[in-house]
């Protein structure tokens, strides 16, 4: 099964630019379904990026982050071929993890 996480991590000199897209409904808990019933809130709360044993970026999200969330940032100290580990957890206890090679 394909991962819920898509990552692109490109090193350019000392700076690695990371873009990630995660498949997640990010339901706010304020929207009704076709039957008029509220769809319960279901959203990623924490998203973490680790490289060489160190957190390089941590996101805390609420329900106002768009469906299939996207984030972009850059960090120093990694090189091509290093592993970048990405993991998320949501408010219902769901989670996913993946590891990407920096290219």
């Amino acid at each position: 099964m394909a991962s819920s996480i898509r990552v692109r991590a490109n090193a350019n000199g000392d700076i690695t630019e990371v873009q990630a897209l995660i498949q997640h409904p990010m339901d706010t808990g304020l929207v009704k379904d076709a039957k008029g019933e509220l769809i319960p809130a279901h959203f990623i709360q924490e998203l973490k990026f680790e490289c060489n044993g160190k957190d390089v970026f941590v996101a805390n999200w609420g329900t106002a982050v768009s469906k299939d969330p996207y984030v972009k940032f850059s960090f120093k100290g990694a090189k091509k071929g290093d592993d970048l580990k990405i993991s998320w957890t949501d408010n219902k206890g769901g989670s996913d993890t993946t590891t990407a090679k920096i290219s």
């Binding site: 394909a2 898509r6 692109r8 873009q19 990630a20 897209l21 498949q23 299939d68 996207y70 972009k72």
Partner: peptide
Amino acid sequence: KEEFPPYEF
């Protein structure tokens, strides 16, 4: 958006 497009999945 096209940097990481929503149709990717």
